[in-house]
Design a protein around this nucleic acid. Structure first.
Lengths: 129, 129
DNA sequence: ATGCTACCTAACCAACTGGTTACCTAACCT
DNA sequence: AGGTTAGGTAACCAGTTGGTTAGGTAGCAT
């Protein structure tokens, strides 16, 4: 894609096991390119391309120290991904499902409650689907 | 990719604004293919391909009612994505950052506490970086 | 029977991806 | 100065993706 939004770039970057493994490694701390490429049966340029994809998505940033170019995890895009999935949490989370049923009941005007179970607790402001 | 793991397929499916828009529409309830294609300046086959990608990733399932093939959201893969991002939550969540500092302090043996602030609350079992 | 609607597959195309080899720069170490 | 190490770019290749047009199938309506 010639012009890709940030979220699409993030998802595309995460859609590769090698790149996810690199992120998992960086979650433990900074690492050089050599260090990052060690676990993979892959040439340097291939890793270099993966890092460029990750950097373009904003998932990593690169420093400079002598002949090394240490990579650092940047979690901003991951936070956006988390926010994205939160929009759908009610589709798998039981407590949200109960909350949905409760709110539906309220909306139907039949607010005699406890018919479908009361919501235990829930961040109401997270629901804007 | 010829053999793609489920998480990769999910991320790849989500890396397209059209497909995310389709999911957003399905979050409001089942819809026919025609209905789903309405908002897009795109031919039918293009939508059909998008739906196939989403179905292959397990993000939707398709029923059959007369000449319609209603699509339904399946949130399982989204839950996996949420679980993935949770592994990195400590990189952007302040309370997790404080928890990290606290645990680091404990591990260093200098458990005199309150030096870097006490953790407010935190699901410890979610941390297995 | 005929036509319309909903949806799909097939074949094609341009652009992108993920990998390679070959080659280059920059920094360190004798 | 010369060699080694870390890392990058360029050119290329096969396979995938996202779109198209053309044409086919299944179900409903007249």
């Amino acid at each position: 894609m010639v012009t890709t939004d940030r979220l699409s770039a993030t998802f595309a970057a995460l859609a590769d096991p090698t790149r996810r493994a690199i992120l998992a490694r960086l979650a433990k701390g900074e690492a050089s390119v050599k260090e990052l490429s060690a676990p993979f049966a892959m040439t340097g340029p291939a890793i270099s391309k993966h890092l460029r994809v990750l950097e373009h998505a904003g998932l990593i940033s690169r420093g400079r120290a002598a002949q090394w170019r240490p990579c650092r995890l940047e979690a901003g895009p991951l936070q956006e991904v988390a926010a994205f999935t939160e929009e759908y949490r009610r589709f798998w989370d039981d407590s949200y499902a109960r909350l949905d049923a409760y709110l539906q009941m309220i909306q139907d005007g039949t607010a005699e409650a406890t018919a479908a179970g009361e919501p235990t607790e829930g961040p109401l402001d997270a629901r804007d689907g």
